[in-house]
Simulated scan of single mutants.
Amino acid sequence: MTLTAPETSTRAAPAVPGRSRSTLARRLVPYGYLSPTVLLIVVLMVVPIVMVIGYSFRDNVIVQENSVFAGFANYTKVLTDESFLAALKNTGVFISVSTLAHLVLGLTFAMMLNSPLLGGVTKAIFRIVYILPWLFTIAVIAVIWRLLLDPAGVVNHVLQTLGLIQEGVNWFSDPGMALWAVTFVNIWAGYPFFMISLLAALQGIPNDLYEAAAVDGTNWFQRFFHVTLPQLRPVIISMAVLDLIWTSHQFALIWMTTGGGPLNATEMLSTFTYKQAFSEYEFATASAAAVIVLLLTMVLAFFYVRSQRER
């Protein structure tokens, strides 16, 4: 008598409906948490950007019910406008000088606060003093510096006392000085952010690197250029690109100090776009200018993302 082994079934077990539904629910949970943020981004950012891009290709938008398609006419009008070209030039000077000064001042003060030559109490006092500009709002900063740089203000009084000038200078009303005056104010208001970020990066550099460099007989300058700067390079690049983006969008400080004047001497891309929309009521032209600013900002954002990926 021959015994045969029972046949084993090779068919897969039928899927349990309840288990598949629970797996699907677990996969959808992260999207549920993200959905409020995604909804806000779409409503508050994506939709307005799409609307502005649409407005830039039409004429008589918002002010008239029936607008007409204008193609690239608004972009041509903006790019050939002398005020826009002046604003583009002023913005380039404003952001480049501000970013460079922020970097130099921030690194200088950060290295001073990181120096072992200063005691703990002295460092705490200097930290409070250096971070004060960052605690003020733009409105307060604008009012303070308008009073300080007034022809009868403190700055002119000190310069006259030292014999550097003969009469008070109206820094914000002089076409040759206004741009440098608002740039100086922006530098004063923004360097603490660089200082704090670079100070944190300096404190993260291992002391072993400096000790090894000292054993090799290097001086302070060699350790700075061959140890400190290479270690700070990722932070410096990220901060510089971010500062270029933020400074290019500076509006409140310019508007509350000079309003873009005198004679377009401090006209920026932000103030030019604002005037086109809410002073001239040329919303189509303002939309075209806003799209151009968006494209320029996206170029800077591309380099920022690229630097982050390299890190």
Rank of each mutant, 00 (worst) to 15 (best):
I95H: 00
L24W: 10
P17R: 13
L44H: 12
P36G: 04
F84I: 05
R26L: 13
L117I: 09
V47A: 15
V97W: 02
Y31C: 05
S22A: 14
L44V: 09
Q64T: 08
T80C: 05
N66T: 12
Y33F: 14
T108V: 11
I41V: 12
S115W: 07
A25L: 14
P48Q: 04
T99W: 00
K77Y: 02
Y31E: 00
V68K: 15
I62D: 08
L44G: 11
F57G: 11
N66Y: 11
V104C: 11
Y31A: 11
S96D: 00
P30H: 04
S67K: 07
L85H: 11
N66C: 04
L88W: 12
L107R: 12
L100N: 08
S20D: 09
L88R: 06
M111Q: 14
T80Q: 10
P48V: 02
A86S: 15
D59K: 14
F72Q: 02
Y75G: 02
P48M: 06
R21M: 08
F57L: 12
V93D: 04
S115N: 10
F94P: 02
N90K: 12
M111P: 07
L34W: 07
F109P: 05
A25M: 12
P36I: 03
P17C: 03
F84V: 07
F109V: 06
K89S: 10
R27Q: 15
Y31T: 07
N66M: 06
E65M: 07
T37V: 08
Y33S: 01
S83N: 15
S22P: 00
V29T: 09
S96V: 10
N114D: 14
V93C: 04
S22R: 15
M51F: 10
M112Y: 04
V63F: 04
M51Q: 14
A101L: 11
P36L: 05
F69Q: 07
R27E: 11
S67Y: 02
I95R: 00
Q64L: 01
T108K: 03
A86K: 15
A86G: 15
A25R: 15
G106I: 01
E65V: 07
V52H: 10
L34T: 02
P17T: 01
T108S: 15
E65D: 11
Y55P: 03
M111L: 14
I53T: 09
Y33W: 06
G54F: 01
V52A: 10
L40P: 06
T80K: 13
V46M: 08
M111H: 11
N66H: 13
Y55M: 12
V46L: 14
F69C: 00
T37K: 02
D81L: 09
F109K: 04
R19N: 05
K77N: 13
R26G: 03
I95C: 02
M51V: 13
H102T: 05
D59V: 01
V29S: 05
V97T: 09
H102W: 01
L117W: 13
G71K: 03
F109W: 02
S96C: 08
G54I: 03
T91L: 04
I62R: 08
L85I: 14
A25N: 09
S67V: 06
G71M: 03
S35Q: 04
L88F: 15
F57W: 12
V46Y: 12
S115P: 10
E65H: 12
A87E: 05
R19Q: 11
V50G: 12
V50A: 15
L40R: 05
F94I: 00
L113V: 05
Q64W: 05
L40D: 03
